Structures are given as structure tokens and as C-alpha cells.
Simulated assay, not measured.
Amino acid sequence: MLGILIHEKERLEIQYLLKREMDEILYDLQDSRIDQVVKRAMKERYQILFSLLTRVAPHNECVNYIISSKKKEGI
């Protein structure tokens, strides 16, 4: 386990970067040209990023990035 001390401005920047990366992954998951193996790796990365987001963002902002099981099947 690691700990880190950051300023509020840095926390907001980390939150912004995580959200931006997660939005890109969600967009790319809808692209039919991307192979399923690659999409599976993207989903794993998304889960890691979501886990990080829950540590730096308020709950009400994390809720927007939860992927429901029905949505997972469609993506």
C-alpha cells in the first residue's frame, strides 16, 4: 500500500485526467472495427481507472462512470 499527499488542485487534475481517459475508452468500445480481444483489455483498463477515480472523486461523480451489466454486454 502506498500513500500520497496532494493539493486540492492536483487532485482535481488527476480526477480530470481519469475521467477524460475513461470517456475515450467508452467511446472506443463502441467502435465495431476494434477486435474483441482489444476491447477486453480496454475494459480491464477501464476498471483500473474507475478504481482510481473512486479514490479521488466524490461519489456523485463516480456514479456517472459505473457500467451496468446490461451496458457491459452491449459494449
Rank of each mutant, 00 (worst) to 15 (best):
L2N: 11
K70S: 11
I67R: 00
L53Q: 07
E61P: 09
Y27L: 10
P58Y: 07
I14C: 07
N64A: 14
Y46T: 07
R11Q: 15
D28Y: 06
D31M: 06
H59Q: 12
L17H: 07
A41E: 15
E10H: 04
A57F: 04
D35E: 12
E8T: 08
E8K: 13
E61L: 14
R11C: 01
I6S: 01
L5Y: 08
S51A: 05
L49V: 11
M1W: 04
L18E: 05
Q30Y: 02
R45Y: 05
V37H: 03
I14L: 12
R40M: 06
R40I: 08
L17G: 00
Q47G: 03
K43A: 10
I6N: 07
L18M: 02
S32T: 13
S68N: 07
E21T: 13
D23Y: 00
L18P: 08
K39R: 10
L52W: 03
K72N: 04
K39I: 01
Q30S: 10
D31F: 01
R40T: 12
D35G: 01
M42L: 13
D35R: 07
E44H: 08
V63E: 15
D23E: 15
E21F: 02
Y27C: 00
Q30P: 01
N64S: 14
M22F: 01
E21A: 11
D31W: 01
I25G: 06
H59W: 04
R33S: 15
Y16L: 06
K70I: 09
L49N: 11
L49F: 08
L49W: 06
R11G: 07
G3Q: 09
L53F: 03
E73T: 04
D35W: 03
I66Y: 05
L18Y: 00
S69T: 12
Y27H: 11
I25K: 08
M1I: 11
S32P: 10
L5G: 06
E13V: 02
P58R: 11
T54C: 06
F50R: 09
Y16E: 14
R11T: 05
Y27V: 04
R45K: 15
I6V: 15
L17W: 02
H7S: 14
L18F: 04
I4S: 07
Y65R: 11
R55S: 12
L49S: 07
I14E: 08
M42A: 12
L53D: 08
H59E: 14
I14F: 02
Y65K: 12
D28A: 05
N60L: 10
P58H: 08
N64D: 14
L12F: 09
H59P: 09
H7C: 03
M42P: 00
N60Y: 14
L29F: 07
M1F: 08
E8W: 03
H7E: 15
M22Y: 01
Y16W: 09
S51C: 06
R11F: 00
Y16Q: 14
V38H: 00
I34K: 05
D35N: 14
T54Q: 13
A41N: 13
